[in-house]
Amino acid sequence: MHIDIITVVPGLLEGPFSHSILKRAEDKGIAKVKVHNLRDYTEGKQRQVDDYAFGGGAGMVMMIEPIAKCIAALKSEREYDEVIYMSPDGKTFNQSMANELSLKQNLIILCGHYKGVDERVREKYITREISIGDYVLSGGELAAAVVADAIIRLIPGVLNDETSALTDSFQDGLLAPPVYTRPSEYEGMKVPEVLMSGHQAKIENWRFEASVRRTKERRPDLLQGRET
């Protein structure tokens, strides 16, 4: 997988892709994330990427020309499955969407900034708009990092245990069950005996029931329309 991220603040994305699972994916040659500074596609000494909005109002708007040049340059190198715009009014990102996008090969993610982008960018270039929640960030960079992380970790070979991603919360519409490790007892708190029984069928049944119970308690909205 190849993900190109377009941003006006590339420094915000240096950390997330230089460590842990995302770095491991790149080292293995499984996934590559490349960050592009939008100012590299501007003209003039000011390297201007934003301007005032027609009609007035507070805040600046990202201009269409630098974005168009950047996307054109990227598309000259490869074909893209999606051009994604991180936007608070996009479709809310969830595990199902992460699963779908993990099957793609090449993605562009455009990070919004200021008061957003010229609407013509969205009309002409964007194929999908994504939000990570009903709140506003200073820019789309952190949201882009969240999406990239959620996608890349699902690609076979990225995680050491390939079954791990399949047992994460939300994969089956439920929260993950409680997990325990050694010691088996700590200050009077004991690990459920079934988890130490070695009886895999009973363990899986306990985990499912615990997932349903936890979901009912903490995220009952996930169970709407589902028989449990």
Rank of each mutant, 00 (worst) to 15 (best):
A143V: 09
E141M: 01
G15Y: 14
A165P: 11
A145Y: 13
R128W: 02
G59M: 05
G139E: 02
A176E: 10
N94S: 14
Q105W: 08
P220Q: 09
I30A: 08
A53R: 15
M189N: 15
D40P: 11
W206D: 03
V9L: 11
V191Q: 07
T42Q: 12
Y186S: 13
S87C: 12
G188A: 06
D172L: 12
G133K: 10
L103C: 11
E187I: 11
D51I: 07
R153D: 00
Q46N: 15
D221Y: 01
A201H: 15
I155T: 04
D118H: 07
P156D: 04
L142H: 15
G44M: 06
P183E: 06
I203H: 10
P220W: 02
P156N: 06
D81Q: 04
K23W: 05
S102A: 15
V191I: 00
I64M: 00
S211Y: 10
K32T: 12
M62N: 04
L74D: 01
E129T: 08
S96C: 14
A150V: 03
G29K: 00
Y52Q: 13
S131T: 01
V35D: 07
D89V: 15
I5W: 11
N37G: 06
M196H: 09
E77Y: 12
Y41W: 05
M63Q: 03
G133E: 07
D221S: 01
V158N: 03
I5F: 14
A31K: 05
I84P: 11
V83I: 05
L166D: 15
H2I: 12
E14C: 10
I84W: 06
E82W: 04
V8D: 03
D81H: 05
V212I: 02
L175S: 00
K45D: 14
Y85D: 09
A25V: 00
E162F: 12
L22C: 03
S76C: 00
H2A: 06
I84Q: 10
P10R: 01
F170Q: 09
T7F: 11
K34Y: 09
E26V: 02
D168R: 07
D27E: 11
D168L: 13
M86R: 02
T215W: 08
R182N: 08
E129I: 04
T228P: 11
H113T: 14
K32H: 15
S18V: 04
F170A: 03
